[in-house]
């Protein structure tokens, strides 16, 4: 039996949409599991720069500091015993209005130096007017800092103008089906991911991208990232389902005709409010919406599958983040 395909009896007890109960045999399963060389990397991703204040007093950070920030969602994360913070990220993958200020970046970089962890700046899909502030932000980063890129144009700029930084392909570039409403795993196979495609690998190589950050999808199996040529990090315990440029919450302060359109000003209402819920009569993954993005929260079976993927060496980094 290939790795990741546990006993049927155990699978059958999992809630609906937990993990794929009968995943397709994967062509890369001939590749033996790759035991991790050492402890996995552990990161925490912060979107709201105001929350840096909560970290500012700490001389060092521990895994519990990171887990505590997740609230009750920490129960959806299982970490190896030896996992301790190695990375700290600031910024949003989803919104051009949430690029951190220069002051916040400087504070976060200083904190990371104090804690002995690597700083990473998270960047979104960019409109042209974002490139100037983005360049200013990138210029503040120390050599070796990471930049999570979610836009091919941003990746180009990082490679060309900031060769001392390390770009990571963010989860907006690692396309896959993540619809928590799918009735069965068969639907999830309609559009398989292309993470192992040769051209994809070459394109990332040519952009100097050395790592992938991905979501763990509904119906995902522990081995779904086995055999990928890049080190893989997984965001936990939330995956994103869909993100738009139109933002309901970001339109809160706008007059009626200007609401729900691109390019308007924003008061970052998403940092103050979110929505949580489900489709009535279903047992689907807990779903939420914050600003322009919908998320699902990992179910216990998904948490177990990620832990197995970590144990087998298919996932080498966990990035904890909220929804």
């Amino acid at each position: 039996m290939p790795p990741g395909r546990g006993a049927k009896t155990e699978e059958s007890r999992r809630p609906i949409h937990d993990t794929d109960p009968d995943p397709d045999p994967h062509p890369d399963l001939s590749i033996p599991p790759k035991p991790p060389a050492g402890p996995i990397e552990l990161g925490f991703a912060l979107v709201d720069e105001r929350e840096l204040a909560a970290f500012a007093r700490q001389e060092r950070v521990t895994r519990d500091d990171y887990l505590e920030r997740l609230g009750d969602a920490r129960q959806c994360v299982t970490l190896p015993d030896d996992a301790e913070p190695t990375h700290f990220f600031l910024g949003s993958e989803f919104c051009e209005h949430l690029l951190p200020s220069i002051e916040a970046i400087d504070r976060a970089v200083a904190l990371c130096e104090r804690w002995g962890v690597t700083f990473g700046l998270v960047t979104p899909i960019a409109c042209d007017s974002l490139f100037e502030p983005l360049r200013a932000a990138l210029a503040r980063l120390p050599a070796g800092a990471e930049v999570t890129v979610n836009d091919w144009g941003v990746a180009r700029v990082v490679q060309r103008e900031f060769p001392g930084l390390r770009p990571v392909a963010g989860r907006l570039l690692g396309k896959m089906l993540k619809d928590p409403r799918l009735p069965s795993a068969t639907w999830a196979r309609m559009y398989p991911n292309g993470l192992r495609a040769g051209p994809f690998r070459e394109i990332l190589d040519n952009l100097g991208i050395g790592r992938l950050e991905l979501d763990f999808p509904p119906f995902g199996a522990a081995d779904m990232y086995a055999g990928i040529d890049f080190p893989v990090g997984v965001r936990a315990p939330y995956g994103y389902i869909a993100k738009g440029r139109i933002c309901k919450l970001g339109s809160l302060a706008l007059d009626v005709p200007e609401k729900f359109s691109p390019g308007h000003r924003c008061r970052r209402e998403c940092l103050g409010f979110s929505e949580v819920g489900a489709r009535p009569g279903t047992r689907e993954l807990e779903t939420s919406q914050r600003g322009n993005t919908m998320y699902y929260r990992h179910a216990p079976g998904m948490t177990a599958a990620i832990a197995e993927a970590v144990a087998k060496g298919w996932v080498s980094r966990i990035v904890l983040s909220g929804a």
């Binding site: 993540k178 738009g244 489900a278």
Partner: peptide, 26 residues
């Protein structure tokens, strides 16, 4: 390009953006 869903048949919910999610603000 960043909507990782399918348009389900309408009796299963249709497009996710008009599906019957019951959200509460927090």
């Amino acid at each position: 390009g960043t909507c990782h869903t399918v348009h389900l048949p309408m009796n299963k919910g249709g497009p996710i953006c008009i599906d019957n999610y019951q959200f509460e603000y927090r």
